[in-house]
Design a protein around this nucleic acid. Structure first.
Lengths: 135, 135
DNA sequence: GATAGGCCTTCCCATCATGGGAAGGTCAAG
DNA sequence: CTTGACCTTCCCATGATGGGAAGGCCTATC
């Protein structure tokens, strides 16, 4: 299988497959005599694993750990769970930060009449930069 | 006022002030004879505006629009409100995406006993890459 | 007036994961 | 043998930010 076919089969772009190889996330693929990378089902499965982990928001660094645990048949599921719960916590932190932005923006937008007059509490808030949101 | 003082007064780092100038988000600051950038209250206020907008998650591109509206005394508040509501929608999209990740991860983590045995539904999910989450 | 150290300047590099594109080689079908 | 679709490597760009080097400036202290 060439890289393009592996890309289609795994959902990881050819560009990213080469990138993952270059940073050592995946082992260097085999090559044909003319230098084309060759992939089999095993490699595609690894790529799908990576793809799925990316979809769950894991960084490449975390994926490296997950792959190591995946390969380690004597792993402790506690280690995997720990990575997952850490990831959950990080995501929730970011969600909370963004939700706070949404709340503030919603508050300001609700206070803005949104017509052709120039008066705008949104700009007023940005202008004074106090961040007062008075929920 | 030198750039360091403007940085402290505005909450925007000196690095970022220079960057914002380089990309044209703010006009080039005045200079002393020896080349130091000089800032006054007006500039600090603009920087605070930018800082606050960044805190609300606006991209530099959006901030450019907001600054233009801010400077335009004949603006329509509807235009400002539109930018804000678009921003709210974008944030909510991203929140929804991350929340979906959290939900999936929570589901998987809950199913993982998290002890010293190797069996782990989290890895199993990544392995098959189906993304089946069965809520 | 000299010296120290704290500020300023520009310039380059790094992040993180991803894509774009150029220049050139390979392969398969017609 | 040509054509077009693929592959290779290499370089550049993203967005917003920080780090750091090399060198100049300013102020306070001696």
């Amino acid at each position: 299988m060439n890289i393009g076919q592996a890309a289609k089969a795994s959902g990881v772009s050819a560009k990213m497959i080469r990138y993952y190889e270059s940073i050592g996330l995946i082992p260097a693929a085999g090559r044909t005599a003319s230098g084309y990378r060759v992939y089999g089902q095993t490699e595609v499965q690894i790529l799908r694993f990576i793809r799925r982990a990316r979809d769950l928001g894991f960084s490449v660094e975390k994926i490296e750990e997950l792959l190591a645990l995946w390969r380690d048949r004597s792993r402790h599921s506690a280690d995997v769970k720990h990575i997952a719960t850490t990831q959950i916590a990080e995501l929730q932190d970011r969600i909370a930060g963004m939700q706070a932005m949404v709340d503030t923006l919603r508050h300001l937008a609700d206070a803005c009449c949104g017509d052709d007059r120039p008066d705008c509490p949104i700009l007023a808030d940005l202008e004074q930069g106090t961040g007062v949101t008075k929920h």
